[in-house]
């Protein structure tokens, strides 16, 4: 996993609530057995005017000029500003893979769906929760200022606006540690192998039918 420490990047606003993982990456692209290559199909149904299929040359498909990610002023954005319950629905990690593949490292929203939130941390993407009033101000600021950027500092747990306003955010200590160091948590868990075996020995006595 790629480390995440700090980022200074352009912000794109996606102003709708309950953006589900079917919208982030539609089902036809889940047929891939790879972990990469989902970027061109991020928000596929909103982004293109024609339906898409895996294996197609997506650069030839007409773009929907009304969709915010297609607007030239947001080209190269790496921070996505979103609304409530972002990433709801299916558990598909492909949604995070698509965001990451399209260059996004941070999603800022007032709330996230649980599974999506977890999946972000496994892929070096930082989901940042900010409260509604702050978010409303960020949406207004982005709309009003072309080239609006945010600085994200994970160590300090801060977003910094171009005006120097500092917005603090919470992040779980263990996840922060893994993200800052780009750590694979399977390796960390396997350091507990003896504790897992000890649990199994005890559990097998209590509930042998679970080990049949």
């Amino acid at each position: 996993m790629e480390k995440f420490t700090r980022l200074d990047a352009l912000v794109v606003p996606l102003d709708r609530a309950n953006v589900d993982t079917d919208a982030i990456i539609p089902k036809q692209y889940l047929k891939s057995v790879q972990r990469s290559g989902f970027g061109p199909n991020l928000f596929d149904d909103w982004r293109y005017l024609t339906p898409g299929e895996p294996g197609q040359d997506h650069s030839q498909r007409p773009l929907n000029p009304d969709f915010v990610l297609n607007q030239p002023r947001y080209a190269g954005a790496r921070i996505l500003l979103a609304r409530e319950n972002f990433g709801c629905g299916s558990s598909r990690e492909h949604a995070v893979w698509a965001l990451e593949d399209a260059g996004f490292r941070v999603v800022v929203a007032p709330s996230f769906a649980d599974i999506f939130f977890n999946n972000c941390f496994k892929n070096g993407v930082l989901p940042v929760v900010v409260e509604g009033a702050v978010l409303d101000r960020l949406f207004a600021a982005v709309a009003g200022c072309e080239g609006y950027r945010l600085q994200v500092d994970l160590q300090a747990q801060q977003l910094v606006t171009p005006q120097g306003e500092v917005i603090g955010f919470e992040v779980d200590e263990f996840r922060k540690y893994c993200l800052l160091n780009g750590l694979d948590d399977i390796g960390l868990t396997l350091q507990q192998a003896e504790a897992i075996r000890e649990y199994e020995r005890k559990r097998r006595q209590e509930a042998p039918w679970l080990f049949a």
């Binding site: 972990r35 990690e93 977890n118 999946n119 779980d172 399977i186 897992i196």
Partner: peptide, 20 residues
């Protein structure tokens, strides 16, 4: 509960998940 693919790999490898 449902999990993502990285967690599928984690459970396959360790029989455990890191949760709160």
């Amino acid at each position: 509960f449902g999990i993502g693919t990285s967690e599928v790999e984690h459970v396959l490898a360790t029989q455990c998940l890191i949760q709160k």
